[in-house]
Amino acid sequence: MTNEAPTAPTAGGTLLLDEQLCFALYAAQRAMTAAYRPLLDELGLTYPQYLVLLVLWERGETTVKELASALRLDYGTMSPLLKRLEAAGLVRRERAAHDERSVLVACTGRGEELKGRAELVPGSMLASTGLVAAEASRLREELRGLAERAQGAADLAR
C-alpha cells in the first residue's frame, strides 16, 4: 500500500489541500486582509470598520438592516461593530422617526473627514499587490459570480 496522493481527480474532486478552491479563497482573503492592515492602522480602523465606512460614504445615511445586507453580515456582528465606530466618533446611530424599530446609521463629521485619507487605500493596495486596474476588475467580477453561485448552492442546501 502506498502513501502517495492520487494523481488524477475522481469525479468528486480530490482531497488535496492545494487543490481546494475554498482554501485558495481563504488564503487569499487572509493575505488581502493582512495587506490592508498597515494602511488601515494609519486610519485607526479595522478591516470590517473600513467596510462599514465604505458603504456609508457611498450611500450616506442608511439603516442597520441595509448596511448588514450590503456587507452580508448578521445583526449580531453589526451591533458591536457599529458600537465601536460610534465610540470612536466616526458614526452616529439613531432610531428612525418614521419607524422606531429601524435604526439609522450615518457618518459624523469626523467620519466624513476620514474619507479623504481613505481615498489613498485602493490605489495603495493595487500598487502593493502588483495588480493593474483591469486585472483587479476582472478578478472582482469573477469573485462576484462565484459568490452568487455559492450563495445559490447554500440557499438550496437549506
Rank of each mutant, 00 (worst) to 15 (best):
residue 3 N to M: 06
residue 5 A to H: 11
residue 6 P to Y: 04
residue 6 P to A: 07
residue 7 T to I: 06
residue 8 A to R: 09
residue 10 T to G: 10
residue 12 G to N: 07
residue 13 G to F: 00
residue 14 T to R: 04
residue 20 Q to L: 15
residue 22 C to G: 05
residue 22 C to K: 06
residue 26 Y to T: 13
residue 32 M to Q: 08
residue 34 A to R: 06
residue 43 L to F: 08
residue 44 G to L: 09
residue 47 Y to T: 04
residue 47 Y to W: 10
residue 47 Y to C: 00
residue 49 Q to D: 00
residue 54 L to H: 14
residue 55 V to T: 12
residue 56 L to A: 09
residue 58 E to S: 14
residue 61 E to W: 02
residue 62 T to K: 03
residue 63 T to Q: 03
residue 67 L to M: 04
residue 69 S to P: 00
residue 70 A to P: 03
residue 73 L to S: 12
residue 73 L to R: 15
residue 78 M to C: 12
residue 79 S to I: 08
residue 87 A to W: 09
residue 89 G to T: 07
residue 93 R to P: 06
residue 95 R to W: 07
residue 96 A to N: 13
residue 98 H to E: 15
residue 102 S to K: 13
residue 103 V to G: 00
residue 105 V to M: 02
residue 106 A to F: 03
residue 106 A to Y: 01
residue 107 C to T: 13
residue 108 T to A: 03
residue 110 R to M: 04
residue 111 G to E: 01
residue 113 E to L: 08
residue 113 E to N: 11
residue 114 L to G: 05
residue 119 E to S: 08
residue 121 V to A: 08
residue 121 V to G: 05
residue 122 P to S: 06
residue 124 S to G: 10
residue 128 S to K: 14
residue 129 T to R: 03
residue 131 L to Y: 09
residue 133 A to P: 04
residue 134 A to S: 14
residue 136 A to E: 10
residue 136 A to F: 08
residue 137 S to I: 05
residue 137 S to H: 04
residue 138 R to K: 15
residue 139 L to T: 12
residue 139 L to M: 13
residue 139 L to C: 02
residue 140 R to T: 14
residue 146 L to E: 11
residue 148 E to Y: 00
residue 152 G to Y: 06
residue 155 D to N: 00
residue 156 L to M: 10
residue 157 A to Y: 14
residue 158 R to I: 11
